[in-house]
Write a protein that binds this DNA or RNA. Structure first.
Lengths: 173, 173
DNA sequence: CTCGAATGTGGACGCTGCGTCTCGTTTCGC
DNA sequence: GCGAAACGAGACGCAGCGTCCACATTCGAG
C-alpha cells in the first residue's frame, strides 16, 4: 500500500497520484482504499508517518556534549532526508497537500513537526539556550527555505556556517 | 480575470480553483483562458506577479541607517502580507503549486524570490554583513517556517527578538 | 464607412478520475 | 467447517479537463 504510494510519488509528477492509480499499483480495489483513507493526501501522510516512526524510531537529536557538533550532525541528517529521492519527494508532496488542507496540517503539526521541534529545543535548552523554541525555528527555518524553494544546494560548508550563525544568535559562541 | 482568481482563492478551498470556475466567475469562455495560460497554476502565479509588481512596486527594503529598525520594519511588512486574508491565501496557493511543478518554481524563483532576497542581502551587505545572502536566508527562513507550517502566530515581540538574533548571528550586535 | 480579420462566447466532445454502489469471492475467527 | 467480515472487480453518474466548432463582436485599414 505505502509502497505503491512511494513508488508513484517518486517516479511521476505529483499530480499523477490518484486513488485509481494507487489502487491499480497496489492491486487493490478502490473500495479498500476508501475504507481506510478519505483522500490521496491522507494516504500520503500515513505513508510519511509510517516511514518516520518506523525507520528512525521517533526523533533522534544527538547529544554528545558538543553542541555545535551535534547540531551539525542533526542538520546534515535532515539534509540527507530532504535530498533523498524517495523521502524527499514524499515530503514535498505532503507539504504541498498541507497547504490546502488545514485538518491535515494540524495532524502533521501535532504528530511530526511539534515532537521534532520539541526534541531540538530540548537539546538546546539542555545546553543553556533560552528561548529554545525560537532557536530551534531559527535552526530549521532556513533549511526549509532553501529546500522548499530550491534556491541553492546544500553542502557541508554551509551546514557548518549555518550552525555557527545560530549559535552566535543565541549567544553561545 | 485576476480578480476572479483572487476571489475564488480567498473564499473557497484551494482545490476548488478550476479552469471552468474561473471562466464562469470572470464571464469568459474557457477558450480565452487557454489562449493565455496553460493551467490554473499559471493564472495563479500571474495574479501574484501582477499584485506584487503593481502594489508595492518591486521590492522595498527600508534603509534609514538603523539596520535593526529597518529589518523589524521589513519583517513586519512581510508578516502583514502573509497574514492578509487575500494575499496570504494567494501566496499559499502558489506555494503549493510550486512544490509540484519545477518549471513554475523556476519562474517564481527568478521573478519574485531572487530579487526579494537580493534586495535584503544588499541592505545587509551595505551595513557591513559578510555572507549577506546566507544572512538574508536566516532572516526570512524562520518566517516562512512559522507561516507555512502554522506553528505559532506572529507578534511584534517575536519580530523584534528574531531580528535581534539574526543581527547577533552576523556579529553586528 | 465599410468590410475583413482577429478575437471572443457558448457549448459540445471524449476522456480521466472521483466517490458510491453492487456483485461474487476469498479469508478469517470461532 | 461455517458464518461474517473483508476484499477484488468493475459499473454508475458526476465534475473538470483540454480541444474543437459555429457564430457574434470588435476593431483597424483602406
Amino acid at each position: 500500500m505505502h509502497e505503491a504510494v512511494l513508488a508513484i510519488v517518486a517516479e511521476r509528477p505529483m499530480a499523477a497520484l490518484t486513488m485509481e492509480g494507487i489502487a491499480a499499483r497496489a492491486s487493490v480495489s478502490k473500495q479498500t482504499l476508501y475504507r481506510t483513507w478519505p483522500s490521496t493526501s491522507a494516504i500520503l501522510f500515513d505513508a510519511l508517518l509510517a516511514r518516520s516512526l518506523d525507520e528512525s524510531g521517533a526523533v533522534v537529536v544527538p547529544d554528545s556534549g558538543d553542541l555545535a557538533a551535534d547540531l551539525r550532525l542533526l542538520i546534515a541528517g535532515m539534509v540527507g532526508e530532504l535530498t533523498d529521492p524517495v523521502h524527499g519527494a514524499l515530503l514535498r508532496a505532503v507539504t504541498a497537500d498541507i497547504l490546502g488542507d488545514e485538518a491535515l496540517a494540524a495532524q502533521h503539526r501535532e504528530l511530526l513537526l511539534r515532537p521534532q521541534l520539541a526534541a531540538i529545543a530540548d537539546r538546546l535548552a539542555r545546553a543553556g539556550v533560552t528561548d529554545a523554541e525560537d532557536a530551534a525555528e531559527l535552526l530549521v527555518g532556513p533549511v526549509l527555505h532553501r529546500w522548499l524553494l530550491r534556491t541553492r544546494r546544500f553542502d557541508e560548508a554551509w551546514v557548518a556556517a549555518h550552525v555557527g550563525r545560530v549559535l552566535r544568535a543565541v549567544a553561545l559562541a
